[in-house]
Design a protein around this nucleic acid. Structure first.
Lengths: 234, 234
DNA sequence: GACGTTTTAGACAATGGCGTCTAATTTTAC
DNA sequence: GTAAAATTAGACGCCATTGTCTAAAACGTC
């Protein structure tokens, strides 16, 4: 049904040759199956089939199902955290065009960190298996979402220091920025659906407008986009 | 470990006697086990043990595991929707003390609809089994969250009509109200943890303050709570 | 107290998944 | 080309689970 990529096609970019190729194919396919079926529902045979690999090869790399699962989660967590900080590094420095820049940033955050494949995987697995593997996801929680909020609040603090924003509690503002960014996408996020670019853009625009209404410097707000209110109603 | 209630103690209020008691005990226990283990990981024997009921009794009421699962989900969905509309009916009518009243409302919403047992169950199951039972959860999505936003936006429209709020897009505002309410609790919600009353209160307070900064009538905002900014920083 | 219904415990076959093993085959390294 | 390493297909034992069946026990009602 859903056209699945062959493992060769799946590994884009530099082709790690040798055993590493199989390893990555296994990790990728296992992530896919674990995500769809959960730990209990995923069968090694299905993972092997998706990875185009024999079952023994999997047991060759990973002692047992649980070992594979932990490796998959750690792999996805590392990718997700790397992507998160890559996106964080694009946070707008200058305060000109703050609405547009923050909107573009929110789009990147939602698209590459929250609505993407890895984000869906982690949400699902943290919810379903989080209680069974507390320490496994705890480290992710601290290094991923935890640091996101810390970093975001520091960045907002800089913008506030420059006079572009008026914020009383940076930490709360950071969390609210992320929450507002998800507001229009919550059901899609829950269902694991992928929003279109227009949906992403619109959600981010709505979020940033409200965020700036709450935290923006009053005079800058109206000076920047005088036609704002008129444009929304359409 | 976690002290489980005996099935008799679990059914509060009017004691439906006869087979109905067993039925409810089975539904309750099955919800518990399905929520913890997922559909694939849940075993009928464990459900029977938790319900203090023999396995055959379960098969007596429900033809097979899937039948039981569907019944459980429908049961929880009905309870959750009923609770949602019960909470919705407490939305503040008058515009006096809007911050306090909206905060109390947000606390009720989070506590009784989102962070409670049923909310956790539905989030988990929608994510893990939603793709396998599309129509089952689709009806919930429409009648639960869908109607929540519709109703909330209508209620906000009334407040705006009274001049208590300044809102351009009621639908967006409704979604943002809910999203802001979750902002400080997102990780707890993801983990299925239960926030304390103080955490609920603080999260709702932060949310409503920001919501009113964005959508509150400018003069009402400062007139109502002049010491607001000073109080937050502590 | 007697009768019909419900529940119970346990046995049972069937299924499917996990993890091991082996022997053959392919790939890689030199 | 050859030797070592990796991979493969398939068979295998083991165990957990599903769903059925049966005979005994408990329950509720009259």
């Amino acid at each position: 049904m859903k056209d699945r990529m062959t493992p060769a096609a799946r590994m884009t970019g530099h082709t790690q040759r040798g055993q590493c190729a199989k390893r990555m194919s296994i990790l990728d396919s296992a992530a896919d199956v674990f995500c769809r079926q959960g730990f209990a529902g995923a069968s090694i045979d299905e993972i092997a089939a998706v990875a185009c690999v024999s079952r023994q090869t999997i047991y060759n790399h990973y002692r047992e199902k649980e070992t594979l699962f932990v490796a998959v989660v750690e792999d996805v967590m590392n990718r997700a955290n790397a992507m998160l900080f890559s996106v964080l590094s694009t946070f707008p420095e200058r305060a000109d065009d703050l609405e547009d820049e923050l909107t573009a940033f929110a789009v990147r955050l939602n698209k590459n960190c929250i609505c993407n494949h890895d984000g869906k995987f982690l949400r699902k697995l943290v919810q379903t298996e989080g209680e069974r593997y507390p320490h496994l996801f705890e480290s992710w929680r601290q290094q991923g979402p935890g640091k996101l909020i810390t970093a975001l609040s520091a960045l907002f603090a800089r913008l506030a220091h420059k006079g572009a924003l008026v914020i009383d509690d940076f930490d709360v503002a950071a969390r609210q920025f992320v929450a507002l960014g998800n507001a229009d996408l919550q059901m899609m996020i829950l269902l694991g659906a992928t929003p279109t670019d227009e949906e992403l853009e619109k959600a981010a625009r709505n979020a940033v407008r409200t965020f700036l209404k709450a935290y923006g410097r009053p005079e800058a707000e109206q000076a920047g986009h005088p036609s704002q209110l008129a444009a929304i109603s359409g």
